[in-house]
Structure formats: structure tokens, C-alpha cells
């Protein structure tokens, strides 16, 4: 620890870079491979976690009668699941592809924006000094305490004054920044980004924004990936607000799924088929972002 600081002070950025690499590298004699107990415990956690997704598959493969008769209608999913997929995609009532496109646009734009602005603000709060920093940060956190249910009516009035009802920006714009994200990046960078690195860059003559770009951003990468993932999932599954400002001509995926669920009796087989179909793109993204999450730290070190 202290060696990092010293090198940063005395030997300039190159030494600091090396120090970062050392500081953050994963492997090392201290972290030997995990033993079987760890895998067993994680296996239990994973079983519990994956269960609803698996259950969704099962229900999507069963017929409604079986579902209402047995707690667990069957133990293995089967191909009748694809019938539900086809029903959802081909239904004339719902525009699946439009909804998929809308959901993608909203989730991508919002996560990119939240990550960028949160990292900027988080870096500023965590590592820069300015007047009013403390109170402003407390203010950011306090905004999370406002119950969202009541914001609906004023927000709707606002959106309707702007003429945005039914348009994607009514969902996107209010979500472009998130107090949660700012707070998270602040706390993460406070721990993960050593002052020495910033100083080293500044000594080298880098401007503030350049320092942010080449030092803070790479260091923030794991947290940013996580924030991006969370935001993406949150937007992807968001139902209440889009259901009010959007309509079935211009829906998102959760609205589509919900519209499968009409009548007094819910055809859970169809709904669960829809739920799984809507979750599928997320799982693909998981695989991708997941790699980023694991690799994030190493990359951060290389770039830093």
C-alpha cells in the first residue's frame, strides 16, 4: 500500500501504472483456488436463484389445467414452450418486434447515460474538492428517499405539457440520471481510486477531463459495468411508468407481457412463455456483460 504511494510520488506515472497493475491484479499467492465448500455453498445459492427462471420455463411448457392442479406441474420443460413463443411473436394484438426495439433503445440510452453521468459526478464527489460537496452529496442521497408513487401525477403533467405522451423520451429523459448511480460511483471510487494516481496524472500536466478520462474512468470500470447492468435490467423490466406514458401502439416488452395477462383468469402458460421470451435477451446480455465484469479489473489496470 505505502509502496504504491511512494512510487506514485517519486517515480511518475509509469511507475504508478505498474503499481496499479500490481494493486489490482487478481491472482497472487494469497488467493489460492476456491475449495469444494465454496462451490457447494454457491451451488445452493445458484439453485435458489435460478429456480424462478426454471419455473417460468416449466409453466410455459405446461397447460393451464396442470398449472392450477399441481404446485409443480412438471419437472422438465418441453417443446410446447415454443408454441407460447410463437403465439406471442405472431399475435396481431401485440407488436413484439416494435416492443423489442423500444426496450432496447430505452435500456441502452438510459444505461449509457446513467453510467457516464454517474461516473462523472461520482468522481467529482469522491476525489475532487469543491465548495458544497458534502451538502450536495447528502442532497443526492436524500432524493432517493422520495416515494416514487406520488411523483407519478406531476411527472405525467410535465410529460403531457411537453407533448411527450406516447413517445419514448417520456420514459428515457426522466431516467437519464440516477441518484443511486451517483452515490454508488462516489462510494466505489472513494475506495478503488487512489489519490496518488490522480496526482501523478496532474503532475504530468493532464487536464481535469483528461485525468478523468484516463485515470478515473478505467478505475471505475467494474463498478460502471455493474451499474450499467443494473440500470439495463431495471429499464428492461420497468412496468409502471411506461404503462402510464406509453401505449400499446408504442409499447415496451413488459407492456406486451402484461397484455397477455387479460381476463379474470390468467393463462399462466402463455404469460410465462412471454416472460421467458422477454428475459431471453437479458440472459444473452448477461453472458456478454458478465465477461466484462470479470475482465473489467484487468483491463482497467492495462489502460491506467
Amino acid at each position: 500500500m505505502s509502496s504504491v504511494a511512494v512510487t506514485a510520488q517519486t517515480a511518475g506515472p509509469h511507475a504508478a501504472k505498474a503499481a496499479v497493475r500490481r494493486r489490482t491484479r487478481r491472482s497472487g499467492s494469497a488467493t489460492h483456488r476456491a475449495g469444494p465448500v465454496v462451490y457447494i455453498l454457491l451451488g445452493i445459492v445458484l439453485l435458489i436463484s435460478v429456480f424462478p427462471l426454471y419455473f417460468t420455463l416449466l409453466l410455459g411448457s405446461s397447460d393451464p389445467v396442470e398449472i392450477s392442479r399441481n404446485p409443480v406441474p412438471q419437472w422438465l420443460p418441453d417443446t410446447s414452450l415454443f408454441t407460447q413463443f410463437a403465439t406471442v411473436i405472431e399475435s396481431t394484438q401485440i407488436n413484439f418486434w416494435l416492443a423489442l426495439g423500444n426496450s432496447l433503445i430505452i435500456a441502452i440510452v438510459v444505461s449509457a447515460s446513467v453510467v457516464l453521468f454517474s461516473t462523472l459526478a461520482g468522481y467529482s464527489f469522491a476525489k475532487l474538492r469543491f465548495r458544497g460537496r458534502g451538502p450536495l452529496l447528502v442532497f443526492v442521497i436524500a432524493t432517493m428517499a422520495v416515494p416514487t408513487q406520488l411523483g407519478v401525477i406531476p411527472m405525467y403533467i410535465l410529460m403531457s405539457d411537453l407533448g411527450w405522451i406516447g413517445k419514448l423520451q417520456a420514459v428515457i429523459v426522466p431516467a437519464l440520471v440516477a441518484a443511486f448511480g451517483v452515490f454508488w460511483m462516489t462510494q466505489y471510487l472513494a475506495e478503488a481510486l487512489p489519490y496518488e494516481l490522480i496526482e501523478a496524472a496532474r503532475v504530468d500536466g493532464a487536464s481535469m477531463i483528461r485525468t478523468f478520462w484516463s485515470i478515473a474512468l478505467p478505475a471505475a470500470r467494474p463498478a460502471a459495468a455493474m451499474l450499467g447492468l443494473f440500470t439495463f435490467v431495471q429499464q428492461w423490466t420497468n412496468y409502471f411508468w411506461p404503462s402510464i406514458v406509453l401505449s400499446s401502439e408504442n409499447p415496451t416488452l413488459p407492456l406486451v407481457v402484461k397484455s397477455l395477462q387479460s381476463n379474470y383468469f390468467v393463462d399462466y402458460s402463455l404469460v410465462m412463455g412471454g416472460v421467458f421470451l422477454v428475459t431471453l435477451p437479458l440472459l444473452v446480455i448477461f453472458a456478454f456483460v458478465g465477461k466484462q465484469l470479470v475482465a473489467g479489473i484487468m483491463q482497467g489496470a492495462v489502460k491506467g
Binding site: I153, S259, S262
Partner: peptide, 26 residues
């Protein structure tokens, strides 16, 4: 004619009252 179907009466009701409360737009 365009037909929009809410899933449940609860959804339909909160949707409608919210819009009525906000002045009727939408």
C-alpha cells in the same frame, strides 16, 4: 378504430385516474 386492452381492471383504473388527474392528455 384502435383497441387498447389493459390486463386487469386495477391497471385500467389507475391508468385512467392518473390521466384524468393530470388533465386528460393521453
Amino acid at each position: 378504430v384502435e383497441h387498447v386492452k389493459a390486463a386487469t381492471t386495477d391497471d385500467a383504473r389507475s391508468n385512467m385516474t392518473t390521466k384524468l388527474a393530470a388533465g386528460g392528455e393521453g
